[in-house]
């Protein structure tokens, strides 16, 4: 197995870990971390695919840079929503199904 495959599979593993964090955790800040792991794992997978031939393909690189910036903007908005929820209700978790009226 080549080094490139190792990095691509690392990316695939990160996406799985991120999805786990996104689904299993109730604390919303942890979900933002999970979301970011999915994003950066996907970028790594995509970037490794663009590096299979030398020199590294610039088009995936440009798209990944755009993706990193947009993921940051989305994270900032998510964090602001979580903070507003915490200030209004005193918690940063969503209500359980049974608590909804």
């Amino acid at each position: 197995m080549s080094g490139l495959s190792v990095l691509a599979l690392t990316g695939a593993g990160l996406i799985g870990l991120g999805i786990y964090g996104l689904l299993a955790h109730a604390q919303l800040l942890r979900r933002v971390i999970g979301f970011n792991l999915v994003g950066s794992g996907l970028f790594l997978f995509f970037g490794a695919a663009g590096a299979r031939e030398m020199p590294v393909d610039p088009i995936p690189q440009a798209l990944i840079i755009t993706g990193i910036v947009v993921a940051f903007a989305a994270s900032a908005l998510a964090v602001a929503l979580i903070t507003a929820l915490a200030r209004a209700t005193g918690r940063a978790t969503l209500p359980e199904e049974s608590e909804r009226s």
Partner: peptide
């Protein structure tokens, strides 16, 4: 990976 522009972006933003 040789993707230095992405490396910089990931370091400073990510």
């Amino acid at each position: 990976l040789g993707a230095y522009d992405v490396a910089l972006a990931e370091g400073v933003i990510g």
